[in-house]
Amino acid sequence: MKRIYSRLMEELLSGKFVFTAEIEAGKTTSLDKVIEAAKMLKNYVTAINITDNPGACAHMNPLVPAYVIQRDVGVEAVYQITCRDRNRIAIISDLLAAAALGIRNVLALTGDHVTMGDNPEAKPVFDLDSASLVYLIRRMVDEGVDLAGNKIEGEVKFHVGIAANPNAMPLELEILKIERKVRLGIDFIQTQCVFDMELTKEFLREVKKFNVPVLVGICPIRSIGMMKWYIKECPGGIKIPMEIQERLLTARERRGKKGVLEESIEISAELIKEIRKTTSAAGVHIMAIGFEWVIPQIIERTGLKC
C-alpha cells in the first residue's frame, strides 16, 4: 500500500476530479500578493504550485511562499524545484528545509535556460536534471539517504511530480521521456497547457499504461499577443487549434480586450468539461499568472466543483 503524505495525493488517488493552480513568488520582498492569491484560490483548488525562478527570472525563493500559504492560508503547496540555479548540495539542502517545513508535494523540473531569463549573464548549473532530481527525491523518501548515500536524520515525506508536454512532437519521444521517470518512481504529472483536445486525448491514452495521475494544464489567454506568443515562441511549443484562435480573434474584434478574456474563460471551462467527460485525467492544473482571479470563475463555470 502506497503511503500518502498529502491531501493532493489523497485526492488524486481518490478518483475525485482535482484542481490545482499556480502562483509566482515574484521579484519582491513582500508576501502579500501570494497570500492574497492563495486565499482567493483556497476554496477552489486542492493545491497551489509555487514556481521556482520561472523563465529563469530571479524571484523570491519559492520555499518561503510555499510554507506561508500552508501555514497561514491553509492551502497545500506544490513546491517547484528546477536544476538550473543550484547544484545537488544546494538542492538537497532545500529539500531538507522543505521537509522540515511540512512541504509534501514537490515538482521536479529541469528549468528554462538562464539565457531566457532576466539575468542572462548567469552561470547555468544543471548539475542534476529533472530525472536525476526525481531519483534524488526517491532516495531521500524511500531510503532516507541523500544522493551520495549519506544518512538523513528523520523521515522525508514527499510526493514527487514531473511536468510533461502533450503538445510535444514527436509524441513518442515525450512518452519515452516520461517512462524513464516512471521507472524511477513518480507520483503525479502536471502538463504544459493544452488547447488541442485531440492531442490531449492521444497523450492521455499513451500515458494511461503508467498508471500515474495526470493533471492537464489549462491556460486562459489574456490577450491576442499572449496567444501569438504561445504559438510562436513559448518554450516547448503549444498548439492552439484554428477554431480557438478564431474565437479569440472574433471576441477581440467584437468586444475588445475584455472580450478576449471572457471568451478565454469560456474556452477554458469547455476544455475542462471535455477533459472530465472524455479522458482519464485526474484533474486539471490552471495557470493564470498575474490574473489568478479568473481561476474561480473558470472552475465555477465548469460546474464540477460543489
Binding site: R84, H113, M116, D129, A131, M169, Q192, P235, G236
Partner: peptide, 20 residues
C-alpha cells in the same frame, strides 16, 4: 545539449529545435 543534460530532452524543446 545547451544544458548538458544526461536525461534529455528538456521541456523547452520545440519541434526538434533547442530552446536556447
Amino acid at each position: 545539449c545547451a544544458k548538458g543534460l544526461l536525461n534529455g530532452p528538456c521541456g523547452g524543446m520545440r519541434e526538434g529545435k533547442c530552446e536556447v
